[in-house]
Design a protein around this nucleic acid. Structure first.
Length: 312
DNA sequence: AAGCTAGACAACCGCGTTCCG
DNA sequence: TCGGAACGCGGTTGTCTAGCT
């Protein structure tokens, strides 16, 4: 492997930073500011490569970083943004003041991904595994199931294929400790708290419990049947298909059959809701993806803005 | 007490993009 | 316009630690 010029010397130190190194970095950056990282180690008297210095500063030493645990509001926002834009950690982190992309990425990988998986939701597609399995049966015609398994996400395989109870019932709020249920915070709280509503876009704040897709009706109705008012609805984090399934296509060919259903759907899913809505069969894959991206930026206008620049 | 395991997170790596001479 | 250096990002690995057996 060819190391960058700043890192190719054997004398370059690697591994965990010591308090002394941190102190040198802080002292240097507070005096000279960040930038031109390749020259920082030499000027600061550190036996590190510039890349390592930049990473240490941006991910750990920056004075504006939050050291405390993620709040339920932050978790909520991460889930929403991940559902909307995927693993673009830097963009997600820009919406969370004091958090770095590494923070968000680690938090996702260690906590949120597991929570979703444990609750029967694919953390990549944000769709229930049961829905994925159902759709999976509609793809590829006579293809052998075993040959298709390989294209499934790792989490999906681990959860659905290698566990005895692939579709656990979602926990009742009655049974959940407060910390668990706080993952999906009350929107009223969220609007009042640190995260500006504008970041989420109007759709997210207005569509929570009213946007009912067929796949998550059962999830929400569990609580409804128990007479409980859930502070969130799982559909917030569930995405519709980019393209309709084969079954959907069949149905769509018969407009009268779906008249009532379409009517209901159009009322229940606000146009501003971030969803990978099914495009018309007339448009191409590329057009569908572009539409999807446009829709994303409509819902997250802040993602279009330049991040606030600060010089440390 | 020792060994093992899983979780958390810091740090590294590779690659694409941007900048600059 | 081109090429090399620097930067930024996302994925992955390494290390530490707490809890369990």
């Amino acid at each position: 492997m060819v190391r960058p010029p700043c890192c190719d010397k054997l004398s370059v130190k690697r591994g965990v930073w010591t308090p002394e190194e941190d102190a040198k970095m802080i002292a240097f950056v507070s005096k000279h500011g960040s930038g031109n990282w390749t020259s920082v180690p030499k000027k600061a008297g550190l036996k590190r490569c510039g890349k390592s210095c930049r990473l240490r500063w941006t991910n750990y030493l920056r004075p504006d970083l939050k050291q405390d645990i993620f709040t339920p509001q932050e978790e909520d926002l991460i889930l929403k943004l991940h559902a909307a834009i995927g693993s673009r950690w830097s963009m997600i982190a820009q919406q969370l003041p004091g958090r770095t992309d590494n923070d968000v990425k680690n938090y996702w990988n260690t906590k949120l991904k597991k929570k979703l998986t444990d609750m029967g939701i694919d953390p990549i597609t944000h769709k229930p595994f049961s829905k994925l399995l159902a759709d999976y049966g509609n793809i590829g015609g006579n293809q052998k199931p075993s040959t298709r398994i390989g294209s499934l996400s790792k989490d999906f395989k681990n959860t659905v294929l290698f566990r005895s109870d692939p579709f656990p019932k979602l926990p009742s709020p009655k049974l959940e400790p407060p910390t668990e249920s706080s993952l999906f915070s009350n929107r009223e709280v969220m609007e009042k708290e640190t995260i500006p509503a504008a970041i989420l876009g109007e759709g997210f704040l207005s569509s929570s419990s009213s946007s009912i897709s067929s796949l998550s009706t059962s999830i929400c109705s569990n609580a409804a049947h128990e007479g409980l008012s859930l502070p969130f609805c799982w559909n917030d984090f569930l995405l519709e298909d980019v393209f309709p399934s084969a079954a959907d296509n069949l149905e769509n060919e018969n407009p009268t059959m779906n008249e009532n259903r379409n009517e209901v759907t159009s009322q229940q899913v606000p146009s501003s809701d971030v969803r990978y809505s099914s495009p018309s069969s007339e448009i191409s894959f590329v057009e569908a993806m572009l539409d999807q991206e446009n829709e994303m930026f409509l819902n997250f206008p802040h993602l279009m803005e330049e991040p606030s620049t600060s010089n440390y």
